[in-house]
Every structure is written in structure tokens, then in C-alpha cells.
Design a protein around this nucleic acid. Structure first.
Length: 287
DNA sequence: AAGGCCGACAACCGCCGAAGG
DNA sequence: ACCTTCGGCGGTTGTCGGCCT
């Protein structure tokens, strides 16, 4: 037997919200809060809407300090870097961009940013091929640079009061990490994500092989790179995975210290275990 | 002017995990 | 330990408006 639906779909209104509905929902939540129960909320207000629909409307549109459209270059870079790092974890990415919602970022990525990035990469790839034809292969010899993704600021920090740290090529401790420092990570990405990748890497003869394996195994996640050659994939694999200390003392609340993998992933904090540290060590041994 | 196409965005759907009984 | 309920999330769909033919 399937689970009971959250509301009577047949009798509940669907589709675009009217200004009146918006006003009702907004004023109620501003005065009383959500009451901790979205499902019961529409009945309380007298809205003929599904509770989940109310929640979505509030989170994505009505709540204060929401920004719509007008993504900056900086935001573009952050979104790209996080997408490459953690994939389509839109809620985590949204947490790094104050005022942006996961839905907004998801839509922006799917409709514009992905294409923008692909266009950029294709251009650069063509330019590089042109160079190689002329016998200039300096780019391919320089494996420490990654020309395929936008050049990114080393650390994005949405808390102006928090010190920004430059990434350092320092490994974090693999074991004996404080459990508390893992909590934030568990809450954001989760160790399983890293464990999975580490397990994949374990079977590889090199980190780069592992990266490629991870990429091939998850084409959707890397759908901006599927046209890259092996050499180019290796360049992507040479993402500078480095660590730096975090001012917040760990992964902490919202991954403020996680930065772009193309210039250095700040898996900052006091501790790291499971797959993350394993990946770090694996990579370090091939540095 | 009309119809088709496409991009952008809002909203829905269904699944999953956490929490509580 | 199991079941139910709910919130949260990501993928997908629906709708609208602008552009092109």
C-alpha cells in the first residue's frame, strides 16, 4: 500500500498563485510563523492549497530578502564550481548565495549557465586545438592549470566578518577527527558522497584514473565535460584538491569554507575522515 | 497577423530521510 | 523495531511571453 497523499489532490487548487493568495500566506506567516506544520497551514489560513505548495511558494517567492534574476559573474563562478564539486545539490549551493533559492539556481543552471559554460569550454577547446595544430602544445604540457572552467576566486565567503583563507596544499588528518567537526559535513554533503568516491578511487591505479572513473560513472554530474578528450579529462582530474584551515573551525554550519575545486577545494576545518581524507591522501600521493 | 518555436521561470511530483508515536 | 507523517530535495512539467518565419 502506498503512502497517503499529503492532501486531497482533486479538491486542492493548483497552478499559479494569485496576489490574494500570496498576501494571505505572507501575512499569516509573518504574524504567526509556519506553526511547524505546513500541511495544516492552508486550512488555518483558509487557502485551498496543498501544504507543500504553500511551503514552496513561501520559500521560493514570498519570504523576505529573496533575489530574483540578475546573477552576477561571481555567482556564476560559484555555482559552476560547486556543481563540479558536489553536483546538483542545489540546496547546498543556494546556502552559499544569500538571497538565492535552490529552485532559482537550478533553473538558472538548466536554462542559461550550463549553456554559457559549454559555449565557453567549446571556444577554449577550439582555440587550443588551433594552437596544437601550429605545434604549440604548451597548454597541454601545463597540467597544473585548468583552462576548462572559469577561473575562480579561491575562497568564497558569504560572511564578511569571517576571514578568508587562501588554500594550502596541506592534508587534513585522516583519522582521529573530532566527530563534531564531521557533523556539519554530514549535514551538508554527507560522508557517503565522499565514501562512494573514495571507494571508486581505491580500485584505481591513479587518482586521475579514479577521477575519470567517477566522471564516466556519473555523466550527468559532469555533463559539461563529456566532450573532453582523455588528456583534457586529466586536466580536469588535476583539480587542485587542497585543504586549508577554516576560520569557523570546521565544516561547520553552512560550508562557508568550501571553495571551488578547480583552484583548490577548501575542505577546511579541524577534521576529516572517511572518504574525504582518503581522497585527499590518494591525491596527495600522485601530486 | 497568425502560428510555431524556444527560453525562462514557476510550480508540481515523487522519493527519501528524519522524527515521533 | 516498526509504522506513519512530514519536511526537504531534485527532477520534471506546465505556462507564459517574446521572437522568428
Amino acid at each position: 500500500m502506498g503512502r497517503a497523499p499529503c492532501c486531497d489532490k482533486a479538491s486542492v487548487k493548483k497552478g499559479p498563485w494569485s496576489p490574494e493568495e500570496d498576501a494571505k500566506l505572507k501575512s499569516f506567516i509573518e504574524q504567526h510563523g509556519t506553526g511547524g506544520n505546513w500541511i495544516a497551514l492552508p486550512q488555518k489560513i483558509g487557502l485551498n492549497r496543498c501544504g507543500k505548495s504553500c511551503r514552496l511558494r513561501w520559500l521560493n517567492y514570498l519570504r523576505p530578502n529573496i533575489k530574483h534574476g540578475g546573477f552576477t559573474e561571481e555567482e556564476d563562478r560559484i555555482i559552476c564550481s560547486f556543481y563540479v564539486t558536489i553536483g546538483s545539490r542545489w540546496s547546498i549551493i543556494a546556502a552559499q548565495l544569500p538571497g538565492r533559492t535552490d529552485n532559482d539556481i537550478k533553473n538558472y543552471w538548466n536554462t542559461r549557465l550550463k549553456k554559457k559554460l559549454l559555449g565557453k569550454q567549446r571556444k577554449e577547446q577550439q582555440a587550443r586545438r588551433g594552437k596544437q595544430h601550429k605545434g604549440d602544445n604548451s597548454d597541454t604540457n601545463n597540467n597544473n592549470q585548468n583552462p576548462y572552467w572559469p577561473e575562480l576566486a579561491p575562497v568564497y565567503n558569504n560572511d564578511q566578518h569571517q576571514q578568508v583563507y587562501e588554500p594550502q596544499s596541506v592534508l587534513m588528518p585522516a583519522s582521529g577527527s573530532s566527530p563534531s567537526s564531521m557533523d556539519g559535513l554530514n549535514n551538508t554533503i554527507g560522508t557517503q558522497f565522499f565514501d562512494d568516491r573514495y571507494n571508486m578511487l581505491q580500485g584505481q591505479s591513479s587518482f586521475l584514473g579514479g577521477i575519470q572513473e567517477v566522471m564516466y560513472s556519473n555523466p550527468q554530474r559532469f555533463d559539461g565535460t563529456e566532450f573532453l578528450s582523455v588528456d583534457e579529462m586529466m586536466n580536469v582530474g588535476r583539480l587542485s584538491l587542497s585543504c586549508s584551515e577554516s576560520a569557523a573551525g570546521g565544516w561547520g554550519a553552512d560550508m562557508n569554507s568550501l571553495v571551488c575545486p578547480t583552484v583548490g577545494s577548501d575542505f577546511g576545518g579541524n577534521g576529516m575522515q572517511h572518504g574525504q581524507a582518503g581522497m585527499m591522501q590518494e591525491y596527495a600521493s600522485f601530486q
